[in-house]
């Protein structure tokens, strides 16, 4: 659905752009291709690593790590699992909901969801290409630490712990 909207909007704008100025549109497509081509090897490498990590860290393993009563250690581990994995939202949220049902705490799930979205260890090679090493490391470190605050507040506000 999300993709359908994305494609629809892109196509509409592309047609409008072409009607207004064919040369400019060609230029835009050239630029799009050049950027895509430049970053493609990093993307493909990231995807191989994603495959590897998700093969090892399947939902079974994850639920064992952040099961009930895992406490702060569980929060730290969930944050690490979230940071190194790259799972699309439509898989991540149902997985998180399932983990909650199986006894994981809100704090652990909060840490997991937060680092999953904000921290990208395997996507770092792509990020470095655009933002450089120092900024990539700093941004991910801050986001990782910030996720503990998010986990703590979610644990207090939602879990009532």
């Amino acid at each position: 659905m999300e993709n359908l909207i994305l494609y629809g909007v892109t196509l509409l704008l592309l047609v409008l752009s072409f009607l207004k100025d064919g040369g400019k549109t060609k230029n835009a497509l050239k630029k799009a291709w050049k950027s895509f081509y430049n970053i493609l090897p990093e993307f493909l490498g990231v995807i191989m690593l994603v495959g590897l990590l998700l093969a090892v860290l399947n939902p079974d393993v994850i639920s064992r790590i952040i099961g009930a009563e895992s406490g702060w250690l569980g929060v730290v581990l969930s944050a690490i699992v979230g940071a190194v994995t790259l799972i699309p939202g439509f898989v991540a949220f149902p997985t998180a909901a399932m983990l909650l049902k199986n006894g994981a705490g809100y704090m652990q799930i909060g840490a997991f969801v937060s680092t999953l979205m904000m921290v990208g260890v395997i996507t770092a090679p792509v990020e470095i290409k655009y933002f450089g090493k120092r900024l990539t490391v700093l941004r991910n470190t801050f986001a990782f630490l910030f996720s503990f605050l998010v986990a703590y507040i979610i644990g207090k506000a939602v879990g009532g712990a």
Binding site: Y7, L14, L29, K31, A32, S35, L44, I47, G51, L86
Partner: peptide, 27 residues
């Protein structure tokens, strides 16, 4: 297998993102 699945997702999402970027850049 999982890499193949992610590749499909990537190839689905990235082209429009890059085209939109190109249009933004030009217009």
């Amino acid at each position: 297998n999982i890499a193949g699945f992610s590749l499909k997702e990537m190839l689905l999402v990235l082209p429009p993102v890059f085209v939109l970027m190109g249009l933004l850049d030009v217009w």
